[in-house]
Simulated scan of single mutants.
Amino acid sequence: MGLATVIIFLLGIANFALNRAVFESGHPMFARLPQTSRTLGRRAALVSEFAVLFFALLLSVEGWPVFAWAYGAYTVCNGVAAWLILGRRL
Rank of each mutant, 00 (worst) to 15 (best):
C77V: 13
A81V: 08
Q35N: 08
W64K: 06
A14Y: 04
S48T: 05
E62P: 01
G12E: 05
S48Q: 06
G79D: 03
E24V: 02
T75H: 03
F67V: 11
W64H: 08
C77W: 15
R88C: 08
A14T: 01
V61H: 07
H27V: 00
R88S: 10
A17I: 10
A4M: 14
F67Y: 10
F9Y: 11
G26Q: 05
F55I: 08
F55Q: 01
A4P: 00
R38Y: 06
I8R: 07
S25W: 04
F9P: 01
A4I: 11
L86H: 09
L11R: 05
L46D: 07
H27I: 01
L40E: 06
G72F: 15
G79K: 06
E24S: 14
R89V: 11
R89Y: 10
N78S: 09
I7L: 15
F23N: 05
G2K: 10
F55S: 04
F54Y: 13
L46F: 12
F9R: 08
M1V: 07
L86I: 09
T75L: 14
W83C: 06
A56N: 03
A17N: 03
A56R: 06
A68C: 11
Y74Q: 03
P28I: 08
F55V: 10
L84G: 06
L11V: 09
L46S: 08
G72W: 11
A68Y: 09
G72P: 01
L86D: 03
M29R: 12
G2T: 04
G79Q: 05
V80C: 11
L18V: 01
G26V: 03
T5M: 14
L90M: 14
L46A: 15
G41P: 00
L84F: 13
L10R: 12
F23L: 14
A44L: 15
W83H: 07
W69N: 02
N19L: 15
A56W: 01
A31W: 06
R43I: 13
